[in-house]
Nucleic acid binder design. Structure first.
Lengths: 193, 193
DNA sequence: AGCTTCATGTAAATTGTTACATGATTAG
DNA sequence: CTAATCATGTAACAATTTACATGAAGCT
């Protein structure tokens, strides 16, 4: 649990830089806004929060209010934390390592299980269409806001990325299905000649 | 190291289903063909290969030839291994968990470091253009082959996915830069009124 | 002479997920 | 009354990366 190269700390600092947060509110924020490109579990969040305090990058506001009978611990970013965040922000982001299980199946299955792959592609299209609709809904909601500030811009740009991504993945799957159909017809012809 | 839910075993089995492999050739295959959507390290490959043999899913061909003075261990998939692969192929692939660090930076940086974000986007565009060119080169190479078999189809479909993905990411970054420029102008105007 | 590729592997460290424990409140 | 949400946290497990160790061959 040395946490010296991981990104968890930065997403916590980033969210805290907007407003003080509890572990729970951080989890919810990530689920609501970052779901399509980032995820963190409580098992990462709570220990990292503790670590940030140890390193002077965050402070727990003493007001550990017992709200509605619930204990909440609010974390606030320190100046040192803001500096750390700014430094990270200026560094070139890592090249993203993607893991598309469906592409493994496409790669290994086109030789033997063409029909199965076709079904997986159908499900993939459905999933991406759904995600796309969500992104478009969110973008419409943002456009309805009168606030034109910078926080809106961040949300808009990340949602826009989701829109481009899901569109591309859906379009790819449609194109892939077409190629598979061609291949099937080719095989059929070969059989009949 | 129980390896019961991980995907490593399946990529090894998948590659072995095409032809017998050494740990090293598996690593190279992944780097060459799957680089843009999957990665495995030697630290995963060698122990998993051992496990596959223990579970009767693969066999080491006794011909541990000392080729050019080098020791190589060739692994061949067994019938049990093929069955296991087929079962996995028929299961719905996991929803992919993406981690785009650049989107975190966009989200946290648009409020304070607009210029930095703009630079990151430039690098991102360059990176995606390069990857796109590679994918298109590979697709052209595949099209040049006279073989129209199923193994070709798998390579074509995965490369096509890369093409769609990199195009989308590049297009998004261009659109994002435009939105950032608009925001800057807006801020400038506000200052001058 | 020195770097890269081929080729195997292990150990430690890190990173991340899942399951569990606890308990109040709120909505159906 | 029951399920979900709010809220904290830990422990175990799983997955993955990185660094190291070894050594020959081939290219510059």
């Amino acid at each position: 649990m040395k946490k010296d190269t991981g990104k968890t700390r930065y997403i916590l600092l980033g969210l805290m830089s907007k407003r003080p947060q509890t572990g729970y509110s951080i989890k919810k924020s990530i689920e609501n806004e970052f779901r399509h490109f980032w995820q963190e579990s409580f098992g990462q969040i709570y220990p990292t929060l503790k670590l940030l305090v140890e390193q002077g990058l965050a402070e727990t506001t003493e007001t550990e209010i017992v709200q509605n009978g619930r204990q909440t611990i609010t974390y606030t970013i320190t100046e040192k934390g803001r500096a750390k965040l700014k430094r990270w922000l200026s560094e070139a982001p890592d090249v993203e390592k993607l893991r598309y299980e469906i592409l493994l199946k496409v790669s290994f299955g086109t030789a033997t299980d063409l029909d199965t792959i076709d079904q997986h592609l159908d499900a993939f299209i459905g999933r991406n269409e759904k995600a796309l609709a969500e992104m478009e809904g969110f973008l419409a909601f943002l456009n309805g806001l009168e606030d034109q500030g910078c926080e809106r811009l961040g949300s808009e740009l990340t949602a826009l990325c989701g829109k481009y991504l899901y569109t591309a993945m859906k379009d790819w799957a449609v194109a892939a299905k077409k190629k598979i159909l061609d291949q099937k017809e080719l095989e059929h012809e070969t059989k009949n000649t």
